[in-house]
Write a protein that binds this DNA or RNA. Structure first.
Length: 286
DNA sequence: GTCCGGCTCC
DNA sequence: GGAGCGGGAC
């Protein structure tokens, strides 16, 4: 890809970028919080949670030493509660070992995969590595006129990347996908139509399982009830959530094995523990 | 009903 | 590779 072409997208980004709060910092902690929150979550919903979360837990140290129960309370409404635990444990890891500073090493943090590692590495540490989210994937596929996956996607992303401004490039790709190169593209306002091979390329994501009646729904209801109620008996949870006994038990078992709830005698509660170094110990062990 | 700046675990 | 994991906006 030519420099002129990269400059066209970066110029568009400079003039049109979404004013997101985490774009005002290069603090790796703030960037990590924003990226974990953004996983499978619409950005408009992330912003208020991000502001509140950073006010409550401004540093890795403050997050790591907080009870998981408080972290889950701050997370409430975002969904995928496991992410809160991952972030909590990631903070503990950073406190103990310091920041991994490369994309490769960042992937050792819990809840941090290829995308999140690349986003943090490029934004906070300036590494020239492509962060390919669902938006960038769609944009690149249209540039190449074919749905890209796996190795070919990674290669196309690496070839397109602007090595001088990797953080801006990655976010420009995401913004272009979110605002212009949408599933139904608005090509009239696209700054880079001249090297788009086929704007009609689009692979719809796989269909999701039914949510109503699912374990996911039950898990979410239980966590929400415990966030509000501190601790509760099985019977009280059944009443609060409206879940049948069997579904409630399934949800509690699944949540317990994920380290998101714990028993205290005959009552259930959100974990009181501080963040733990991941790997080696199981959630319940000490 | 669809979809979202994915990740973990099998 | 595929299932499981939340919740809100549209």
């Amino acid at each position: 890809m030519s420099t002129a072409r990269r400059d066209a997208l970066l110029a568009w980004y400079d003039a049109n970028r979404r004013p997101l709060p985490w774009r005002q910092t290069r603090d790796p902690y703030a960037v990590l919080v924003s990226e974990v929150m953004a996983q499978q979550t619409q950005i408009v919903r992330v912003v208020p949670h991000y502001e509140r979360f950073l006010a409550l837990f401004p540093t890795p140290e403050s997050l790591a030493r907080a009870p998981l129960a408080e972290v889950l309370a701050a997370w409430s409404g975002l969904g995928y509660n496991r992410r809160a635990r991952f972030l909590h444990d990631a903070a503990a890891h950073v406190v103990q070992h310091g920041w991994p500073t490369t994309s490769e090493e960042l992937q050792a943090l819990p809840g941090v995969g290829a995308y999140t590692a690349a986003a943090v590495a490029s934004i906070a540490f300036g590494e020239a590595v492509p962060a390919v989210d669902t938006n960038a994937k769609r944009v690149l596929s249209r540039w190449e006129a074919t749905p890209l996956e796996g190795t070919r996607l990674a290669e196309a992303a690496a070839a397109a990347l602007d090595g001088d401004r990797p953080a801006d490039w990655n976010q420009a790709m995401m913004d272009l996908g979110a605002r212009v190169c949408m599933p139904k593209p608005d090509c009239d306002s696209c700054p880079v139509t001249d090297w788009c091979a086929d704007a009609s390329v689009y692979s719809a994501p796989a269909r999701q399982a039914r949510f109503s009646g699912s374990t996911r729904q039950a898990r979410g209801a239980v966590v929400r009830a415990l966030v509000h109620g501190n601790s509760a008996s099985h019977a009280a949870l059944a009443k609060q959530t409206g879940l049948a006994t069997t579904r409630l038990r399934e949800a509690l078992e699944a949540l317990e094995s994920d380290g998101l709830v714990e028993r205290s005698g005959r009552r259930w509660q959100l974990p009181a523990a501080a963040g733990r170094i991941s790997g080696g110990t199981t959630p319940g062990s000490s």
